[in-house]
């Protein structure tokens, strides 16, 4: 690998990271604004037009606030936890493709790395992500944090299973673990009109994936780890300043990852109608991808504005007694249909 190519790759990583962090910052603005309008309020309006500079103001505020470390904490783990949460949240984007394969000087423009096991990589990084929350809850040495951490770990173990089972149907259809290959298997349209997206043959799997992904990212109606009325703020109760912000960023980055995965696995990724001049055609896939991800982010906020929180036993019963059996049934049915079709 020559030096210019290496520099090019590094520049690509920096650009992707910058776009990602900006998106995370504006996802917060988007959620506050949308939530406000759904509740007949205005939301942020003071900083910039429509409050558009609010994320920047928030970042400056969080960076300059006093960083309080309570005296009873287990210091090393307490300091490690927010880093663990944020790093695992950002790491998934190393394998997420956001556009068709476009090689420039031997470097793929629209993906950082096309791993053969891309999907498993995202799942494994997700399974490591729970440590950030659990260790934060434990090391804070406070009962609210501990309860939040416990709930978070139990919830994530339970719903990880459902996520894993619900994506196997997609794997059976595409025959690959590479995210790019999965998206490419969804190109084109059946009978000229219906896109070959996995959501149509795998609508049960899609439903399971969506519910489990919302639970996995600790969002309403599954936000028990940080239920304000019972636990103050759950696992990050004792964190302040930038460490608190890191948990916040990790949560929104996880939401983005889940939205990206739903788009890639079930909604055909960047595939969509292409038209116009060549320059427009080169950019349109990125637009379709962003639009689909945006729809899922909208859904997240919509659910938060609409649904009340589950009770803890309901959450566990729903995961184990409904979601896992349904995902398993979908898996058996899919493999049966494919076996009959192929044989």
């Amino acid at each position: 690998m020559s030096l210019p190519v290496l520099g090019f790759i590094l520049a690509k990583i920096v650009v992707v990271l910058a776009v990602l962090l900006t998106t995370v910052a504006y996802a917060v603005w988007f959620e506050r604004k949308l939530l406000a309008h759904m509740q007949s309020r205005w939301g942020p309006t003071r900083v910039g037009p429509h409050g558009l500079l609010q994320p920047i103001a928030d970042a400056i505020k969080l960076l300059t606030k006093e960083d309080i470390i309570p005296s009873g904490v287990f210091r090393l783990v307490y300091l490690l936890a927010p880093f663990l949460a944020l790093v695992t949240a950002l790491l998934s984007f190393a394998v997420i493709p956001y556009g068709p394969s476009r090689q420039v000087a031997g470097v793929d423009l629209f993906q950082i790395s096309d791993l053969d096991i891309g999907l498993l990589f995202v799942l494994s990084v997700g399974s490591m992500g729970v440590y950030g929350f659990v260790l934060a809850g434990w090391s804070s040495n406070s009962k609210y944090s501990l309860l939040g951490g416990l709930r978070s770990s139990a919830q994530m173990i339970s719903y990880e299973l459902a996520i894993g089972l619900s994506v196997v149907g997609v794997l059976l259809l595409s025959g690959s673990l590479s995210l790019r290959a999965i998206v490419d298997a969804q190109a084109g349209a059946a009978w000229g009109v219906l896109p070959r997206w996995n959501i149509f043959p795998q609508f049960v799997g899609f439903g399971c994936f969506l519910v489990a992904a919302i639970a996995e990212t600790n969002r309403t109606p599954f936000d028990l780890p940080e239920a304000e009325q019972e636990l103050v703020a759950g696992y990050h109760t004792e964190y302040s300043s930038m460490k608190f912000a890191m948990f916040f960023m990790a949560e929104y980055a996880n939401m983005l990852t889940a939205s990206c995965m739903a788009t890639l696995l079930f909604l055909g990724g960047w595939h969509g109608p292409l038209f116009g001049p060549a320059a427009l055609q080169a950019v349109l896939p990125l637009f379709w991808f962003a639009l689909k991800v945006f729809c899922f982010m909208f859904l997240y906020v919509w659910l938060r504005a609409t649904l009340p929180r589950f009770r803890y036993d309901q959450l566990m019963a729903f995961g184990w007694k409904f979601l896992v059996p349904v995902a398993m049934g979908n898996l058996i049915l899919t493999s049966f249909v494919i076996a009959v079709w192929a044989g």
């Binding site: 729970v130 260790l135 501990l146 994530m156």
Partner: peptide, 8 residues
């Protein structure tokens, strides 16, 4: 995670 869960 289960180990850590039980310890906690």
């Amino acid at each position: 995670v289960l180990f850590v869960f039980v310890i906690m």
